[in-house]
Simulated scan of single mutants.
Amino acid sequence: MYDSADIGGGLGVLRAGIVSAQYMSAFNVPASAISPVIVLRHDGIVLATQQDFWHRYKIGEKNKVTHPWTGAPLTRSPALLGAGDGLPAGLEAHALDKQLARGVIVLACALAFQDAADQEIDVVVAADDGGVEPDQRTILALGEAKVNETLTVARVRRLERARALGASCAGHQAAADRQQHRPRAAQARRPSFRCGDRGS
C-alpha cells in the first residue's frame, strides 16, 4: 500500500509503479501477481483530480507544487506527467492514469475530496451562472445574512445542505455539516434543527 497524504511531487503514485516493476523483475512474475494499492487522502486528494481541474483552479500555483525530478515549479498534476514532461525514461508508464488502466487499485478519501471542493473550488457563483450575480433573496433564503458577501459555489452547497436538514440559522451550520458526514444508519435518525434550539 502506498499512502499519499500530501502532493509530494506525485512521488507516492510513481513509487507504487516503480516498486511493482522491481518486484516483477526480481521474482519473475507477471503484473497479475502484484496487487499494489494507492491511497490518496488529506492534501494528496488533489492527485485524484484530472488535469483540467488543476488548470482551472491553479492547484499547482496555490500549493507550490514542484516537479518530482527537476524541482521546478509545476502547474500540472505530478501524478499525470507523461513522456516529454521531464521524467526519466520509462517512468511515464507509472502515471496515475496509466496505473489505473492496468487495474491498480486507487482509493480516494471522500471526506478529503469534499474538503478540497470547499477549499479549492473557490469560484464565485456568478462564474458558473453566466456572469449573473445570485439573487439577493436567494442568498438570504439560504441563510446568508451578510448582504455584501460574495458566495462561493461551495458555500451555497453547504447552505443548501443545512436548509435541507432544517438548519435555518447560521448557528447550526456546523451541526448540519457534521450530520451530513454521519454514517447512513445514523442519518436515518438525524434530528431537525430550528432557530432557538440549543446545539448538541
Score class of each variant (00 low, 15 high):
residue 1 M to P: 09
residue 4 S to N: 13
residue 5 A to H: 08
residue 6 D to I: 10
residue 7 I to R: 00
residue 10 G to R: 00
residue 11 L to N: 11
residue 15 R to K: 10
residue 16 A to R: 00
residue 16 A to S: 13
residue 19 V to S: 05
residue 22 Q to A: 14
residue 26 A to H: 10
residue 27 F to I: 07
residue 32 S to I: 06
residue 37 V to T: 15
residue 37 V to Y: 09
residue 39 V to E: 09
residue 39 V to H: 11
residue 42 H to L: 13
residue 45 I to K: 00
residue 53 F to C: 04
residue 55 H to G: 10
residue 57 Y to K: 00
residue 58 K to L: 11
residue 62 K to Q: 12
residue 64 K to Y: 09
residue 71 G to D: 07
residue 71 G to N: 04
residue 73 P to R: 02
residue 73 P to S: 07
residue 74 L to H: 00
residue 76 R to K: 15
residue 77 S to F: 03
residue 82 G to S: 09
residue 82 G to A: 07
residue 85 D to K: 02
residue 86 G to H: 04
residue 89 A to V: 11
residue 89 A to I: 07
residue 91 L to M: 12
residue 96 L to E: 03
residue 101 A to T: 06
residue 101 A to R: 08
residue 103 G to M: 07
residue 106 V to Y: 04
residue 107 L to E: 14
residue 109 C to V: 06
residue 111 L to I: 13
residue 114 Q to W: 09
residue 121 I to L: 09
residue 122 D to C: 04
residue 123 V to S: 14
residue 124 V to A: 14
residue 126 A to Q: 11
residue 131 G to R: 01
residue 131 G to E: 07
residue 133 E to F: 06
residue 133 E to G: 05
residue 135 D to H: 07
residue 141 A to C: 06
residue 141 A to M: 12
residue 141 A to E: 14
residue 145 A to D: 15
residue 147 V to C: 04
residue 147 V to A: 12
residue 150 T to R: 08
residue 150 T to P: 10
residue 151 L to N: 02
residue 152 T to S: 12
residue 155 R to V: 05
residue 158 R to N: 09
residue 158 R to V: 01
residue 160 E to C: 07
residue 161 R to S: 12
residue 163 R to T: 09
residue 165 L to S: 08
residue 167 A to E: 02
residue 169 C to M: 06
residue 169 C to D: 08
residue 179 Q to H: 03
residue 181 H to P: 01
residue 185 A to S: 11
residue 186 A to T: 12
residue 187 Q to W: 11
residue 187 Q to R: 15
residue 187 Q to K: 13
residue 192 S to L: 15
residue 192 S to A: 13
residue 194 R to E: 12
residue 195 C to H: 03
residue 195 C to G: 06
residue 195 C to Q: 06
residue 196 G to I: 06
residue 197 D to Y: 01
residue 197 D to N: 10
residue 200 S to M: 12
residue 200 S to Y: 09
